[in-house]
Design a protein around this nucleic acid. Structure first.
Lengths: 194, 194
DNA sequence: ACAGACTCTGTATATTTATACATGGAAATG
DNA sequence: CATTTCCATGTATAAATATACAGAGTCTGT
């Protein structure tokens, strides 16, 4: 949900899921033992959470961790006594992902609801320099370092004249179905470059 | 553990998780209804699973899907009648990740465990989305950030139909000797994507 | 020092996900 | 054709994850 250190669009309440039995992981009774009553962590102010988060990041990066119970055991070995509930929250706060190989740190790509599409016309007008054609291929020259965003904008247009784009640093290669449509697209792009 | 087609270092039995109540998602009783007895899918051979997988990829890419129940409802709207159990398996087979924004397609950047070349079939199955052809050129769309590793895998195959490849962020351009062989290669790649 | 606002966390439980079994159909075998 | 093998999938249920509540420290202002 919170999108990490980014835009944070956030929408609904975003429910998560549940818990129940004892779990084969924790085997014997040892899951719920930090005394009982309730809180007690205040041992040394509160930097504890920070450290725990760091530890989690390390552990997750080091070896595949498939469940919060497993993570909990590893944390205990490092001296962090916490319950599964807290780990669930930690994982949420750290924006970790869970996949085939257990938990993983986020790798960019996650931007789902990002609404920051600048608009092809705008981007081209700002960074586009010129367009050249070679049969069904178009080579779009942009200002240094802008090829990537420009290609992204073009891709998002979903134009039928565009089969695909590949961007370098200041060059975007656009593959068109055929010469005819490459021509068409070239005119359109040139118009946008102004 | 079926392990499927992938590198999957996977260690032990790798347990997953559970299920229990009725879930607010499915509200009234309608989750478990496809008759009962058992199988019945054999309707039209078996391409059904393939289509379902494609649909899942699309839905997941289109909007944030936070649970399998939610995914199930969207699939039903598209005509796919399946149970949560099947979706759990599908998601496993598609190597999808679940994060702050719901399910997401895998990101090539996460390939840090294995040291050996993953193998074209595995990589394509995980990151390949679709193939388009423009004359003697093929444009392979991959999940965000996975083009590089996919291109690498294809290059290492040393196929005679491949003259060369160039990879961007989510697009791989493959140059073939001629249209005929581009066609041949396209079919092969599509088969590997599933 | 006390009340109010916050934060962090545990407990108990609701929700979600993964799996052990079992079934039925298609394709492969004999 | 009967038998054996796979495969995809449903059902029931175990396992895992998220959350509603509530309590205990910490701060702050009065």
């Amino acid at each position: 949900m919170e999108m990490y250190l980014y835009a944070h669009p956030e929408r609904g309440p975003e429910p998560r899921s549940g818990f129940a039995g004892k779990s084969s992981e924790e085997a014997s009774g040892e899951e719920t033992h930090p005394e009982f009553g309730c809180n007690d962590k205040g041992t040394q102010r509160e930097p504890m959470k920070q450290d725990r988060h760091s530890a989690i990041r390390e552990l997750v990066a080091a070896a595949p961790i498939g469940s919060q119970g497993e993570l909990r055991r590893k944390l205990v070995k490092r001296g962090f006594e916490v319950t599964q509930a807290t780990l669930s929250r930690d994982i949420h706060e750290l924006h970790l992902y869970k996949g085939p190989n257990g938990y993983a740190v986020p790798n960019g790509a996650a931007l789902d609801d990002g609404e920051d599409l600048p608009g092809t016309e705008e981007v081209l007008n700002s960074f586009g320099l010129k367009v050249k054609q070679a049969q069904n291929q178009l080579v779009l020259i942009t200002t240094s370092g802008s090829a990537q965003p420009v290609a992204l904008a073009i891709d998002s247009e979903d134009w039928p004249e565009v089969v695909g784009t590949i961007a370098g640093d200041d060059t975007v290669l656009i593959i068109c179905p055929d010469n005819k449509r490459a021509n068409l697209l070239r005119d359109r792009l040139e118009a946008m470059i102004g």
